[in-house]
Structures are given as structure tokens and as C-alpha cells.
Design a protein around this nucleic acid. Structure first.
Length: 822
RNA sequence: GCCCCCGUAGCCCAAUGGCAGAGGCAAACCCCUUAAAAGGGUUCCAGUGUGGGUUCGAGUCCCACCGGGGGCACCA
């Protein structure tokens, strides 16, 4: 055997095996309904083609591939698809800069990433590849939009919306993070615009309640974030009469028990209601106040420490239960799009109302006795529990009883009822940009909003490029006159296409359904095939989508369920959020100059070593600081493992009876198989790798100073190692598998099975403690009884030396521990 | 301000309430080698952020604090 045969040359292995794997195509999922193998659906969040793959991709896909390859080895029919989330702004911005079409940049990047994925050795079923910017894909966005429209789940309305001045488009609430655009970071402003919405609020209750289905499969923090985002609250609607106005005004409150403590009334300054209510001689003040508020950015307006502002509207509201007259104010701390855009203010028990009352000298009346200082004097509201006072029929009641009682009273009088409110707003889906799915609506002067008939889909994007795409506040599509002007599908008269495109989160809300039947030309997905594959067994991706993509996908799934197209209500049974790859304690960035290039790492250490480093660095959820890990060390380990496989392969042929091999090594191998199996199942991949390292060392010792490379136990260990290692380092494992005399591919080798007979230990070391200190160790049978062990322990000389008479207590945990309390 | 997660050798990380160390990095040394690299091996290193509590027994459970990370923050 030549030494060079045992040398581990990652680059050579990559070249050799990548081509062979592509020919063998071992990861194609079977659609044969008679395939007896149980199915598993593993999904990675599909990439946006921003350039080549980066370190973050390297981590997610390495992690997900461990799970996918494990399932393949366990004999599942695995669906592990790949596609690209290829609509979106960066392509458009690049196209403007280069005077090109967004498709050029997009599809070039997709090819680059696809090539990198193939080299990275991920176990994809490439036959299902999709790109959301293909007309064959976005056609179905439009088809789905039409279905939503028919059901009243897609509608157009005017209102204040979030506008990103940088990207020149509106944004959904979910895409505004702390007042800034989620994508570009610019400060978001409010504009009054007529836009398309999806009625996700109709599903608020189910989005909340169905979380029970994934309670055990999703990270707690993602569930918490979604719960907070949906923001369900329970309370009551209360109708107040406004003097000088026929229509009463309804307010929502979570504390109807404090109704008697309402000392003023506030409407959102920006709501139309404010001017409707406003007394004529106060209108100038309101208009002036509105102008002041409009000058503020959202950041300033929403700052919690901002001083309260407002203006009296010259009107009084009448408390429906006490009959008390209270002044009506307009203020910007009341939001026009939550509840009814108006509140009853109870300064004693709500800090915001108290701040306002103190600023404007409004009365503060305690109606819940909490035992704390009077808020009117302390300046601190008392929102907690207590006994009702100054509240007529509620006096003496505790909070929950008072709420029940007051709701009864309101109901009897017809001035209110229990109510539920959500923080969740409808999903604004229009975008004033080009590189997205055209909204398939035609506006006709006579017929109104007319959907483009299904048989005329897709409404393809017109061919615009370069300067024509520059943001100008209205969609670039508006300038494509030939495209815009069409005949109304209903009456045939002149009409105009809607010129906005859809939020690209629409694309990703159902792509996982399309993977089951990517080429389907008659439907977005094949219902029968989806029944076999769905829902997704394991989803892997970043936590940044906790309330974006994941919430929208859950919404889509529920709508499609109601349409009878999907057989499940939750799309993702288990969710794994991988950590980030950082460098020297900080996120990689150009400005910090601490970027690490995935391609360069692979060139230097090989695909397997990079993947192994990602997996071995720590738990998958944790961030990896690339400065703390060593791909060079990973490469060394792989070389070591490779030599074990190569030497075992050279010394023996397949088929030897392992039972004739060295028992000690066999025990190590089988214990490793057993543990690695459990560790992979529980996603503790870093520990699984540590076990593989131990097995490699044990095999090394067996070859060098034990029974030798030809021993069947060495072969058995090397073969098991190869298969386990193939989850993380497929090239090294495949070559090792070949050296061990097996044909390609190791992907079909099958997971090793631990022999229970080799897992039992003949003896266990039992620790004997006296008062918690170890005083003796006994070699005992694993099956020893408690009584036997107690007798044995008490008979020990070393133990007796520390005992003074009879022990008070003896705790026996057979077979591993005895603790004697003297 | 409120809520959640995490603090274990110089570093990354293990440890069903039961002997604090599985694995790796770094360091030192030995073997192999003409030499170096590669390879093989040995050794060094913390009492688990701090202070209480529960328990026969706490890194693990509870409370408070300190430090780091994350989420929410006028939603009535």
C-alpha cells in the first residue's frame, strides 16, 4: 500500500465524487404512491440570490443536510428540495445601476449559488428546483390572489400606511422594525394611500390557537414572538354618547371595571373621527395640532418617554353608566388603527392617561383601591389588582368580578359588551416596485376591480430595464402604457391594469407546497401529492423570520386548508433556528472588514472540513464565532478518520464476520452507534461528532497497538464510522466507503445498527459516598439490587473508617451510587 | 421600563439532581524523522459569574444580584 493512497486530499475527492453523485442522483424523492418507505419532508428556508453563498448559508445547509442524510440512511423516502426566492429589491437596484434587466443579475446569481451548492455536497433533489421570479411560478401567486379575492380575503382600501422613502414603496407592519425599514434601515414615514391588503386578521384567533399544534416542535421564543405580534387582548366595547352628536362613539378597554374612573375621553388625532366630533370653534386648534404631529417621525412619536401632547375638542362625552360628563380630547398617543381609535381615559390606573391628565390638569379619580400611593400625587398609576371604590354598583368587588358585573350592566343597557382585540393588522401587500408579481386586477370605470381571468394568467411583467425601474413613488409598471391599458375582461371597455406588484413574502408563503409538484401547469400544487408529503417534518432557517415569513406561511396554509386544497392547518411541524456565523465577536460586515468568504474557506480546507467545523462548533442554535473554531483542525481529524478507513479497507475485504473481531473495539463501535443515533435524533450534532472522534481514536489504537488493521472489528468500526461521518463530511466518507470495498454511493449504505448485546456492561463502577464525599468505589454488576448494594457498601472497610456507629440514612441508586449519611 | 435565554479550564464546548471533563483548539514535552512538516503519544489546566435557599447530594431546581445576548415597548 502506497502512502499516497492514504493521504487525504479534499480537493481531489470533491472533483472525483461531485461528478459521480450527479450521475447517480441518489437524493431524488420518489413520487411512487406504492413506495413502501415512510416519507419525510425536510426544508431549508430557500435562499435569496444576492451573490454567491456566504458563511451563513454554509451553516444552515450543513445543519439541515445532517438531518436529511440521516433520514436517507434510515431508509426514509426524503423530500429535500431547493429553490430560489428570486423576486425582490436588490435585483432591481442592481438593474438600475447597470442599466440592465433585473433578471440578468438574478439568474446569474442563481447559477453561481447552484454551482456552489453542488460543490458543497448538499443532498438536494435538484429535479424540483424552482425560482419565484419565473412566470410559471408567479402565475400561481396571481391564481392564489384571485382565490383570496373571491373570498374577500384580498381587498383594497385607503388609509395611513408605512412608506419607506429609501425604497420608495409601502411596507407591511411586519416589515417595520422599530420604526425602520426591515430591508434597508431607512426611517419609515406614514402616508395616506389606497392599497391592497390580505385579511390576515380574520385568522388571528386560529393563528394563535393553532400554535398548540407546534408547541413542542418550535423554539419557545418564536412562539412567544408570534403570540406578542398577534397580541390578543380581552376587554369590552363601551359606547359613549357625545353631546351634540347623534352617533355614539365606541371605545375598547381591557379594564371596563375602571369605567367609573374615566375622567376624560381621547380620540386619535389623525382619525377622521376627531374632526367629526370637534366643536367648530376648536377646529383650528385641531388642525394646528395635527400639523405639529405630522412633523414628527414615527420614532419620535412612538418614544415612550415622549411628553404627552393633545388638544381639547370643545365637546363632552357622557359616561354610559354614571352619566358623568367628561371632556373629549384629541391626542397622538391614541392610535387610529387599534380598537376604535378612541379611548376612555382612566388616569388613576393607566400610566399614559395619568401622564396626560397631569400635563393638562385633568382630574384623577381612584376607583381601584390597591393599597399603593394615590396616583394623582405620586404620578405613578396603579394598574394592579384591588378592590373597587367610588364605582357605584361595583364597589367592594375584586377586579375580575367587577369586569363580569360591568359587562352585564353594559349589556343590559345596550351600551356595550365584552370584546376581543388584536394587535395584528391586515397584511399590506401592494408594492410600488417592479421586480415582483403583478397584482392581477384590472380597474374598470364601470365594473370596478375586475380580476384577470385564470385562463389569462400569468399577467407577465412588461420588459422594463435600467432607468425605467428607478423609484419614483409610483410603480414603474405605470409607465408601461401598452401594458397598462387593456380591455375590461367583464365589459370589454377601456380599463387599466393595477400597476403595483405583490410583497415578495407572498412568493415564500406557499413555495413549500409547490415543491411537491414543481412542474404542474394546471394548479399551484398537486393536492394528492401534497397529501403524501405534507406537512413539513423539519424546517431549518433563521430566526429573523419569526413574525414575517413564518406567520404569513401559516396564514396561507390555513386559507388553503379552508379551500380544501391542503390537508393540514400548520405547515411546519418542527422548526430549527440555526445561529449566525460571526467573526471576532461581531457580525461580519464590509465596514468592519471582518468578513470571511465561504468559497475561500472551502478552497483552503475543503468542503468537508468547513461543514464539519460548522457542525462541531457547538449546538446548532448557537452562534459560531469563526475566530474560535479551527477548520484546519477539522481537516486533520478528517485525515485521521480517512486513514483509519483506508487502512482497514486495504487490510481486509468486505463480508468478514465482525463477531470474530476484537470485542473491546466492537463495544466502542456499537456504543458509538447507539449514542450517535440518539444525538442526531435530538439535534446534538456537535456531541455526535465528538463521539465519532472517539471511535476514530479507538480504531487507531486497535490498528497500531491492538489486534491490527486486518481485524474484522476494525473493519466494522471503520464502516460504521464512514456512514455516520457521511452526514457531515460526505466526500471523505464516500472515498472511505470505496476504500472499504463498497460501491457508490454511501448515501444508500443504510444506518448502522447497534447490537444490544454489545451495549451491556459486565460491571459498573459504583461510587460510595459518606456524607457526600467519595470514600470507595466498587465494581458491581449492572443488575445488582438495592439491598445487595447497600450491604456491600456498608461492608466496605474504607466506608466503615468514616462511620461512627450506625448510619442515619443510606441512599442507594443502584448500580451507580450509594450515599451514606452518618 | 417589562419579558425570555445564557454565564463550566487560556479558548470552543460536554455532563437523565449522583465521582465536574466526553470531544476539540491552544500550550509544553516525548516518539518517529538526517531535518522539518505530516503522523503517533503524554502532560498541564476550572470546582461551574456572585450571594442565599431546597436536598442525603446542586453546574443542573428555587430566589436575589452582576455580566452577556435577544424580544417587546404609547395596542388602551
Amino acid at each position: 500500500m502506497a502512502v499516497s493512497d492514504e493521504q487525504y486530499d479534499p480537493q481531489a475527492l470533491q472533483e472525483k465524487w461531485q461528478a459521480r453523485w450527479e450521475a447517480l442522483d441518489p437524493f431524488r424523492a420518489s413520487e411512487d404512491p406504492d413506495d413502501p418507505r415512510p416519507r419525510k419532508y425536510l426544508l431549508d428556508m430557500f435562499p435569496y440570490p444576492s451573490g454567491d453563498l456566504h458563511m451563513g448559508h454554509g451553516e444552515v445547509f450543513a445543519i439541515a443536510d445532517v438531518i436529511a442524510r440521516y433520514w436517507f440512511q434510515r431508509g426514509y423516502n426524503v423530500l429535500h428540495p431547493i429553490g430560489w426566492d428570486s423576486f425582490g429589491l436588490p435585483a432591481e437596484n442592481a438593474a438600475i445601476r447597470r442599466n440592465a434587466h433585473p433578471a440578468e443579475w438574478t439568474y446569474a446569481n442563481i447559477e453561481t449559488q447552484a454551482t456552489s451548492f453542488r460543490r458543497y455536497g448538499i443532498s438536494f433533489d435538484w429535479s424540483r428546483r424552482l425560482h419565484t421570479s419565473d412566470p410559471e411560478y408567479y402565475r400561481w401567486n396571481q391564481w392564489l390572489f384571485n382565490r383570496f379575492f373571491e373570498r374577500g380575503l384580498a381587498y383594497r382600501r385607503g388609509g395611513l400606511v408605512n412608506w419607506c422613502p429609501q425604497d420608495q414603496t409601502v411596507l407591511a407592519n411586519e416589515q417595520v422594525v422599530a420604526g425602520h425599514c426591515e430591508r434597508c434601515g431607512a426611517e419609515v414615514i406614514r402616508r395616506e394611500l389606497t392599497q391592497w391588503y390580505f385579511k390576515i386578521t380574520d385568522y388571528a384567533d386560529r393563528l394563535l390557537d393553532d400554535m398548540a399544534e407546534v408547541q413542542d416542535g418550535w423554539p419557545e421564543r418564536v412562539l412567544t414572538m408570534q403570540r406578542n405580534w398577534i397580541g390578543r387582548s380581552e376587554g369590552a366595547d363601551v359606547r359613549f354618547r357625545i353631546e351634540g352628536r347623534d352617533e355614539p362613539v365606541t371605545v375598547y378597554t381591557t379594564r371596563p371595571d375602571t369605567l367609573f374612573g374615566a375622567t376624560f375621553f381621547v380620540v386619535a388625532a389623525d382619525a377622521p373621527l376627531a374632526e367629526e366630533i370637534c366643536a367648530p370653534d376648536h377646529l383650528d386648534a385641531l388642525i394646528a395640532y395635527r400639523a405639529e404631529v405630522a412633523k414628527l417621525s414615527d420614532i419620535e412619536r412612538l418614544a415612550t418617554d415622549k411628553e404627552k401632547t393633545g388638544v381639547f375638542l370643545g365637546r363632552y362625552a357622557v359616561n354610559p353608566v354614571s352619566g358623568e360628563r367628561i371632556p373629549v380630547w384629541a391626542a397622538d398617543y391614541v392610535l387610529s388603527d387599534y380598537g376604535h381609535g378612541a379611548i376612555m381615559a382612566v388616569p388613576a390606573h393607566d400610566q399614559r392617561d395619568l401622564d396626560f391628565a397631569l400635563k393638562f390638569g385633568l382630574p384623577v379619580r381612584v376607583v381601584v383601591h390597591t393599597g399603593l400611593a394615590d396616583p394623582g400625587e405620586s404620578g405613578v398609576a396603579t394598574p394592579g389588582e384591588g378592590t373597587l371604590v367610588n364605582s357605584g354598583p361595583l364597589d367592594g368587588l375584586a377586579k375580575t368580578e367587577a369586569i363580569t358585573r360591568i359587562v352585564e350592566i353594559l349589556r343590559e343597557r345596550g351600551t356595550g359588551d365584552a370584546a376581543v382585540n388584536f394587535r395584528l393588522r391586515d397584511w399590506l401587500l401592494s408594492r410600488q416596485r417592479f421586480w415582483g408579481t403583478p397584482i392581477p386586477i384590472i380597474h374598470c370605470a364601470d365594473c370596478g376591480e375586475v380580476p384577470v381571468p385564470d385562463d389569462q394568467l400569468p399577467v407577465a411583467l412588461p420588459d422594463l430595464r435600467g432607468e425605467a425601474l428607478a423609484p419614483k413613488g409610483v410603480s414603474p409598471l405605470a409607465s408601461a402604457t401598452d401594458w397598462v391599458n387593456v380591455d375590461c375582461p367583464k365589459c370589454g371597455g377601456p380599463a387599466r391594469r393595477d400597476t403595483d406588484t405583490m410583497d415578495t413574502f407572498v412568493d415564500s408563503s406557499w413555495y413549500f407546497l409547490r415543491y411537491c409538484s414543481p412542474g404542474d401547469e394546471t394548479a399551484p400544487f398537486d393536492v394528492e401529492r401534497l397529501k403524501r408529503w405534507g406537512p413539513i417534518d423539519q424546517y431549518v432557517g433563521g430566526v429573523e423570520h419569526a413574525v414575517l415569513h413564518l406567520l404569513y406561511s401559516r396564514f396561507f396554509t390555513k386559507v388553503l386548508y379552508d379551500m380544501g386544497l391542503v390537508g393540514f392547518t400548520e405547515p411546519f411541524l418542527r422548526l430549527l433556528n440555526q445561529g449566525q456565523v460571526i467573526n471576532r465577536g461581531k457580525a461580519m460586515s464590509k465596514s468592519l472588514g471582518n468578513g470571511v468568504d465561504l468559497g475561500e474557506q472551502i478552497d483552503a480546507f475543503g468542503v468537508d472540513a468547513v461543514r464539519l467545523t460548522m457542525i462541531f462548533a457547538g449546538p446548532p442554535e448557537d452562534d459560531i464565532d469563526w475566530a474560535d473554531v479551527s477548520p484546519a483542525a477539522s481537516q486533520k481529524f478528517l485525515a485521521r478518520a480517512f486513514r483509519v478507513m483506508a487502512e482497514a479497507g486495504a487490510a481486509s475485504a468486505p463480508g468478514a464476520d465482525p463477531a470474530t473481531g476484537d470485542t473491546e473495539l466492537r463495544k466502542v463501535a456499537h456504543r458509538t452507534i447507539d449514542e450517535v443515533t440518539r444525538l442526531v435524533e435530538s439535534h446534538r450534532f456537535n456531541v455526535a461528532v465528538a463521539r465519532m472522534m472517539e471511535l476514530t481514536s479507538a480504531a487507531r489504537r486497535a490498528i497500531d497497538s491492538g489486534p491490527g488493521a486486518a481485524d474484522p472489528a476494525v473493519r466494522e468500526a471503520a464502516e460504521a464510522l464512514a456512514v455516520m461521518l457521511s452526514l457531515v463530511a460526505p466526500y471523505c466518507a464516500e472515498e472511505g466507503w470505496e476504500r472499504l470495498g463498497h460501491g457508490p454511493t454511501i448515501a444508500r449504505a443504510g444506518w448502522p445498527v447497534a447490537d444490544p448485546a454489545l451495549l451491556v456492561q459486565e460491571s459498573v463502577t459504583c461510587v460510595v459516598q459518606v456524607a457526600g464525599k467519595v470514600r470507595d468505589r466498587l465494581e458491581v454488576s449492572p443488575e445488582i439490587s438495592e439491598d445487595e448494594l447497600r450491604t456491600l457498601a456498608l461492608a466496605s472497610d474504607k466506608v466503615r473508617a468514616h462511620l461512627d456507629g450506625d448510619p442515619r440514612k443510606v441512599i442507594v441508586r443502584a448500580p451507580k451510587l450509594v450515599n451514606i449519611v452518618p
